[in-house]
Design a protein around this nucleic acid. Structure first.
Lengths: 357, 357
DNA sequence: TTGTAAGCGTTATCAT
DNA sequence: ATGATAACGCTTACAA
């Protein structure tokens, strides 16, 4: 240890072995070694075994860039979380989507890259650059991603599938939950319980989710013969705290709602907190319905009545369609709308403080 | 819209433009275009401008794999979270490290990849494969990563720097907090307040962090003339819930401690919960000191007395040394030990229920 | 069944 | 200041 300064760099920086090293050791040509390792049929079993042994001995791993350049693909897919979610990893809804995506990709040997939709300066966002740089073979745009940038990705020749969103222009296949239907079911459930002043805590976002949920809510009111009162509708960011504030405004009105439908479970939790802030009991004084059925929903107290969204299915279906596109198979660009179902738990009851709980 | 089925794939899948397209449009040769875009000195200003304009017009982005192959580097660094942390992103300590790493890399135009240390089957873990595949130019191994695998990475010719860990073999530069000193300061503080039965909630891990913190704790006791009682030492996973249980065992003893040093803030929070479970007041009935000074520490009630670890600095220093290695500059392989300081807040007081609070 | 030749898109080295 | 040539490591098409 007399020369600690250079000890780290003195060791001749060993290079990883290349295919030619493997080929030489196995006594075959480079292309033969390549075919052997990639399991091509026309290589004899004996050769395959010799090459495999050589590769093992040398700890051979193909040079990723070389392979990508040569094959023209990366076996890698990017998933781009849109602007509507702040903490992608902490969001239970997106985490569930992700798990569906991951399992589907895994079975086909694809890797997954998470790329935020952030944008520096005047540049195109990173995910567009990645498409142009051919770093990935396909993209999953999840949530609120501007159609303009989706176009740029497509122009770069990279297949795109939308997840939890769709564009009216139908420029790419899309997988969405039946948000209109879910909102309809949730609201109808409240109306069926006898509620007449049903509040709506919606999402203040630009993409279809915002309008679809409101459409479902309104249609349910109309079908139930309840006159819609615009004053009972509020909208805010998709976030528990914002929903708490928004619901507070609703509850502080002269004629407050006896029930509220919030378009996500996290927002429903915010609504419940707003009610608790005011000493209201759930569901005796206020019924609440959410949407998503995240893991949290069933363990709250009381457990949340909500709309079960098949998140893993959404992720899986989206990934499958993307793989189809990547492999050159045709895919219907019309949005695929996945059904959902109402799950009645403990936060809903009749308007007069009676049932459940 | 009479043929929705094939609409997506019918559009000729445009290819992103290559350098030769740019060169042709600018009326120069391919190598010239390359040099112009990469800012080589010997290209005339006029040519540079023409090439830049052409590139802009064609939305040119270099093919990532081609560039990597040609340049022999990826401008990309992997950070590998060791086995000691479950949720990497939710861990406030590692998040802070990460931010330091990120800013240091960013200024040098490097990208950062997070690769879990998981291992499938009999294979080498993914991060070793990535080194062999030359997907990255260097690696930051954070926390408990087995030295065996670090060796494999080095053998692949990939520079390594250890973060929040070091190997006795000193095979790679390392950046660590002065865990021994921090534990010493924390324990000494408690002794100075008059405590004589000082508990230790340590980390049940294989790497030096576990033994270093205990060494500091013991030395502080000895220097303060307090006889060490092995029964006051417990160890468990680095986790609030585990610490809560472990501390519970300490508090349920016949002669319970009047103060406890926990080796991380999250564990200290667990200790506080254990005390609260038993109706003890902090710090009147039990003093608690943590270590790390995560954001959470200052906002608890009462605010946590802890050892401030310079997490961003650690990340930054580690990244810098890795960049040095990557650029062929020598780096001292001896561990760099960053100092820390005790931050006295509200969870510590004298042993008789008096001071503070 | 295997070896030879060519090419993927970029950058570096050498002429000019 | 710029253009031709070779190289990076691998895969695919073609020849043997």
């Amino acid at each position: 240890m007399s020369e600690p300064i250079s000890a780290v760099n003195v060791a001749p920086r060993a290079r990883p072995s290349r295919l030619r090293d493997v080929a030489r050791l196995a006594g075959v040509s480079v292309p033969t070694a390549s075919q052997a390792l990639n399991g091509h049929a026309r290589i004899s079993a004996g050769t395959k075994e010799r090459v495999a042994a050589a590769a093992r001995e040398l700890h051979y791993t193909p040079h990723a860039a070389a392979r990508r350049l040569s094959r023209g693909r990366s076996d890698c897919v990017a998933i781009v979380p849109g602007m509507n979610m702040s903490g992608f990893f902490s969001d239970l809804f997106y985490r569930a989507l992700l798990s569906g995506v991951g399992t589907a990709l895994e079975t086909e040997g694809f890797r997954m890259l998470i790329t935020p939709a952030v944008r520096f300066d005047e540049q195109a966002p990173q995910f567009v650059q990645m498409a142009r740089a051919r770093e990935i073979d396909g993209m999953l745009l999840a949530g609120a991603v501007d159609v303009h940038w989706a176009r740029r990705v497509l122009e770069a020749g990279t297949p795109v599938v939308l997840l939890d969103n769709y564009y009216p222009e139908a420029i790419a296949p899309a997988i969405v939950n039946d948000n209109t239907g879910g909102a309809y079911a949730a609201t109808s459930h409240l109306a069926a319980l006898g509620h007449r002043r049903i509040g709506f805590v919606g999402a203040d976002v630009e993409y279809p989710f915002g309008s679809d949920t409101r459409a479902g809510y309104r249609r349910a009111l109309r079908d139930a013969g309840v006159s819609a009162d615009p004053a009972l509708e509020v909208r805010c960011a998709i976030d528990a705290e914002c929903a708490r504030a928004a619901a507070g405004r609703l509850l502080d009105r002269a004629g407050p709602p006896t029930a509220i439908f919030a378009v996500t479970d996290m927002m429903a939790l915010g609504v419940i907190n707003a009610a608790r802030d005011r000493g209201l009991r759930i569901p005796a004084d206020l019924s609440v319905v959410g949407m998503d059925d995240i893991e949290l929903a069933s363990v709250t107290n009381p457990p949340l009545t909500t709309v079960r969204v098949h998140k893993e299915d959404m992720g899986r279906e989206a990934a499958r369609r993307l793989l189809d596109l990547i492999h050159g198979r045709d895919v219907d660009p019309a949005p695929v709308v996945l059904p959902n179902e109402l799950v009645i738990r403990g936060t809903t009851g009749g308007p007069h403080g009676a049932s459940l709980c």
